[in-house]
């Protein structure tokens, strides 16, 4: 292998267009490899990619499929929304009032350490099986990373920033919305970034154990009735959903943090 060849390849990988080209190539190779292996394989658990995609296209646009998908998305949105509201409000309180922080922080450390899915039976006991249980569980699991990051951000608010607000008599709602919330926003967004994948896990888990609707329900039902193609199509849909969610969230983050110095953010 010649030295020039490798440096050329390296330069290609650094440039924007070269990176995209290599990435597309990688995705194509991965898809081809999967369909080649699964197509020729005799293993019934790994059906061919083409069949999975066919089933995906056949099942998910039906009213039943759409119903299951929207049921999942609704609870996901409600649970995450609730977690953000409660987490930011409580985090701001805890971060700004030292007495509150001292009082509750050991309890917080403990509750946070409980694996979120261990609370599935607890949520089922309180709310039975249904949407309330799902929303409650997602909110309960996702609130901690948001709350703790917000509290950290609020505790670390810059002294000069707060002094500036005091000196110029920026108080009340204008102080809260114009100074404190934007200053804490980067940390809130870090918390939400941790919460997003967690919310998907909790959504699927709650649907697998206690629901009659939703993506997780479809996947487990399909497994129980040995409809492997439907099961696989559910996994694919979840993968796409997770990908779309994280991509959309990254875009939202960039939009909300446009005022940040890009040099400071990247370091």
């Amino acid at each position: 292998m010649s030295v020039t060849r490798t440096t050329e390849l390296r330069r290609l990988a650094d440039g924007g267009r070269g990176r995209v080209a290599l990435g597309v190539l990688g995705a194509l190779v991965a898809v081809l490899a999967w369909s080649a292996v699964s197509g020729s394989s005799e293993n019934i658990y790994f059906p061919s990619l083409l069949e999975i995609l066919e089933r995906t296209a056949a099942y998910w646009p039906t009213p039943e499929g759409v119903d299951n998908l929207t049921a999942s998305l609704r609870t996901l949105g409600a649970g995450l929304g609730l977690a953000v509201l409660v987490g930011v409000a409580a985090g701001l309180l805890i971060g700004q009032v030292p007495v509150v922080a001292q009082t509750v922080s050991p309890a917080l450390e403990f509750v946070r350490a409980i694996p979120a899915t261990a609370l599935v039976p607890f949520a089922m006991m309180l709310f039975g099986v249904g949407d309330e249980m799902k929303v409650f569980l997602i909110a309960l699991g996702c609130v901690w990373p948001i709350l703790l990051n917000t509290a950290d951000g609020a505790r670390g608010l810059d002294a000069t920033l707060l002094d500036t607000a005091r000196v110029f008599h920026v108080t009340g709602l204008r102080r809260a919305l114009g100074v404190v919330v934007p200053a804490v926003l980067p940390r809130v967004l870090v918390g939400v970034r941790i919460a997003v994948p967690l919310s998907l896990i909790l959504m699927v888990t709650s649907e697998m154990v206690g629901a009659q609707r939703g993506l997780g329900y479809v996947i487990t039902q399909a497994q129980a009735t040995f409809q492997l193609l439907t099961m696989w199509s559910g996994i694919v849909v979840l993968g796409v959903l997770g990908f779309l969610l994280t991509t959309a969230y990254s875009a939202l983050e960039r939009l909300l943090l446009r005022w940040c110095d890009p040099k400071r953010v990247s370091s």
Binding site: A27, Y45, P197, L200, I201, M203, V204, T205, M208, L215, G216, I219, T220, A222, Q223, M231, W232, G234, I235, L238, G239, G242, F243, L245, T246
Partner: peptide, 13 residues
Amino acid sequence: FLRPIPSVALIPL
């Protein structure tokens, strides 16, 4: 693509 798949979705498999 693989990273955001909630791994609990793989439980049935």
